[in-house]
């Protein structure tokens, strides 16, 4: 396949998967802008409305979308020969490099902080009610960390290809 077409397809995939990933995160912020802690009653009864709502939101789509987004982004940089420059934050590649580091942090957060705690909250991993309540707070903070990180992520990703790179030469 022609390298330019491959690059365009990767960029398309990167955008689509990124919108699915961050879109899920933003959706949770819009639907629940203010934190409301779970209580023991929510978790001790599997039929409670809040627990059922939590359970139905767990489908893994955004977690896997994060892997697709990250992989497509990395592959794009690699096939352009700019991965090394982005990793070392060299010159005009510094903005996309910063975006890449933030995106990597977000993916690791989703998989290795949010997910293990959310598994306990949902009862997918056995835990006491008090432990599940503690984990629900960490899940919230982890999710909002990614919301917060998405702002500089999008700024530096956009700056890398839409004029920002020129400013940083």
């Amino acid at each position: 396949m022609d390298a330019a077409i491959f690059d365009l397809l990767l960029r398309w995939l990167h955008f689509l998967a990124g919108m699915i990933w961050v879109g899920h995160n933003y959706s949770s912020v819009v639907q629940r802008p203010t934190y409301r802690p779970l209580c023991a009653e929510d978790l001790s009864n599997d039929d409670s409305p809040r627990f059922q709502a939590l359970l139905h939101r767990e489908h893994g789509v955004f977690r896997w979308a994060s892997v697709v987004t990250w992989s497509a982004g990395l592959l794009m940089l690699w096939q352009r020969g700019t991965l090394g420059g982005a990793l070392s934050l060299s010159g005009a590649l510094a903005p996309i490099g910063i975006g890449m580091y933030i995106g990597t942090l977000m993916m690791l957060n989703a998989w290795f902080v949010l997910w293990p705690h959310q598994q306990k909250v949902l009862g997918l991993v056995p835990a006491t009610i008090s432990e599940r309540l503690r984990c629900s707070r960490i899940s919230h903070l982890s999710s909002r960390t990614n919301t917060m990180l998405s702002l500089p992520l999008l700024f530096f990703m956009a700056a890398g290809a839409h004029g920002g790179a020129y400013l940083f030469k």
């Binding site: 912020v29 010159g91 510094a94 917060m148 702002l151 500089p152 530096f156």
Partner: peptide
């Protein structure tokens, strides 16, 4: 309350981090 407990607090922190990283890029990295 923790800034993450409201949507506004979360967005403001994100904007602040963007500015800080921009300053880091401009004055330190490049």
């Amino acid at each position: 309350r923790h800034p993450y407990d409201t949507a506004t607090g979360t967005v403001l922190l994100g904007a602040l981090l963007t500015v800080l990283l921009l300053a880091l890029l401009h004055f330190v990295i490049l």
